[in-house]
Design a protein around this nucleic acid. Sequence first.
DNA 1: TGCACATTATACCTATCGGTTAATTAACCT
DNA 2: AGGTTAATTAACCGATAGGTATAATGTGCA
Lengths: 124, 124
Amino acid sequence: MQDSLSQTFAALADPTRRAMLAQLTLGDANISELAQPFLDRMSLPAITKHVKVLEKAGLVVKSRDAQWRSCTLNAEALRAVADWMEQYRSFWEARFDRLDAYLKTLPKKQKSEGAKNGRQRKAK
Amino acid sequence: MQDSLSQTFAALADPTRRAMLAQLTLGDANISELAQPFLDRMSLPAITKHVKVLEKAGLVVKSRDAQWRSCTLNAEALRAVADWMEQYRSFWEARFDRLDAYLKTLPKKQKSEGAKNGRQRKAK
DNA sequence: TGCACATTATACCTATCGGTTAATTAACCT
DNA sequence: AGGTTAATTAACCGATAGGTATAATGTGCA
């Protein structure tokens, strides 16, 4: 997996782990608490593994308190994802793809034909 | 993998595939063109597989033109990711992460009793 | 001292991932 | 028809992902 962006994406590519992150937005939680919604579906060691994946990706920080491990959301780790996403935002947010990125930086202006699309080829 | 958000995240969790998406922001490309930067590292069938992953995730649309398959970026598919990310933005964007998280949940402060971790940073 | 509880480690299983080589399909071009 | 090119399929491989059951670790407490 190597690079950390890939690691983060991989960590997010699982509904159980995303649900855990969602729960952590409501506050820290220890393993048992994090596990509770899933215990009808999977075992505790499975939970531990999921948490470890989140931890390695930097999305969660664990601290120990006696026999409990308190997990904290570290949303910082999502910034890299957000930054990566940003380069694509203009491609989905407006109809006039790349032009839109430019227009956003200016006061309202009118759009002249969106086909500014640098993208056709077929030049065979 | 089931859910499409997981599928999208999984598709993005590979540097080769992300590089392909990046190239597609510059314009459509067929398989050979997409493959070109990677052919010293991997074979053409490997490329085909990567493209197929992107296609199944909806990130790329393929159209055929004689023996060529023209690939187009479909950034629409990234919107679901962006929407998901949005719910975490406040957790990394503000300088006062923790405080922000706390403020957002202020209305439901009645759970402070039972839950040992209701939300507070644990005066350790 | 010793039990109960929270969590992790170990060992194992199956399925999927990312890659390979070799063969196949499909279209074009004389 | 035959050859070249673009892309895919098929069969295979080793590594990893996600899960299991069970054993081990570490801490608080009666």
